[in-house]
Amino acid sequence: MSKIDHAMHQLHSLESMAKEERWINRLHPSVKLFLTILYVVLTVSFSKYQLAGLLGMVIYPAALFIVAELSLKDALWRLRIVLPLVCIVGAANPFLDRTAAMNLGGIVVSGGVLSMLSLMLKGVLAVLASYLLIATTSIEKICYALRQAHVPKILVTEILLIYRYITVLLSETRRVVTAYSLRAPKQKGIAFAAWGPLAGQMLLRSMDRAERVYQSMCLRGFRGEFCFGGTGAPGRTDVLWLVFWTAMLLVLRFVPVMEIVGGLFV
């Protein structure tokens, strides 16, 4: 399987995952979106030295991974490109902030190391929470929830169209690259001289195809806004899930749970 095929397969498998008939997938998208946003906001609101408190926030994604029967290993593999970037953010902190912040059994840990770890953890947790949202909610439902939250329709439509056109671009790229490689069998990769024409071809073909997709949408009554169906008002389970996790996240954020638990053993 080529890299492009693999990318398309990954995209479609994520979509399939989001459409599975699991309990968590059936939860109201607005509830899941709200909790994800709340989680990310609360996670990043920890101060840079509150590593212990931040560890408590691991509970939410851990619980979701279990409930949704998703594999953490699979998630980390899918996020292998994003996660290192997130981790790089705080990489310079140990050099910039060398003040001693804590002593771990005789080992002095500087403020820079602590802040680097907390930044990394914040990033990883935020990315994992987003991943959990898209792995359990289809893009249409996320966009529906965004519209329910009064996000401007132009923005939501843009998100949906960009998402749709990723596949269009990928499939056109695959065709162009396949056509090229079939006529350059002994060549590894694409010759530098061909980059320009191929990129131009891809752009033109993608635009052409995107236009046909758009025409097809217009011919079926599309007037600038996607209409989402099949999602009624939140039910009792949705409300219970929302109340439980809102309370839980607020407690994890504002009560030093990890320190209290730690105190029990000291």
Partner: peptide
Amino acid sequence: DSQLFMTT
């Protein structure tokens, strides 16, 4: 392929 653009 141009006509079908939703997921399912």
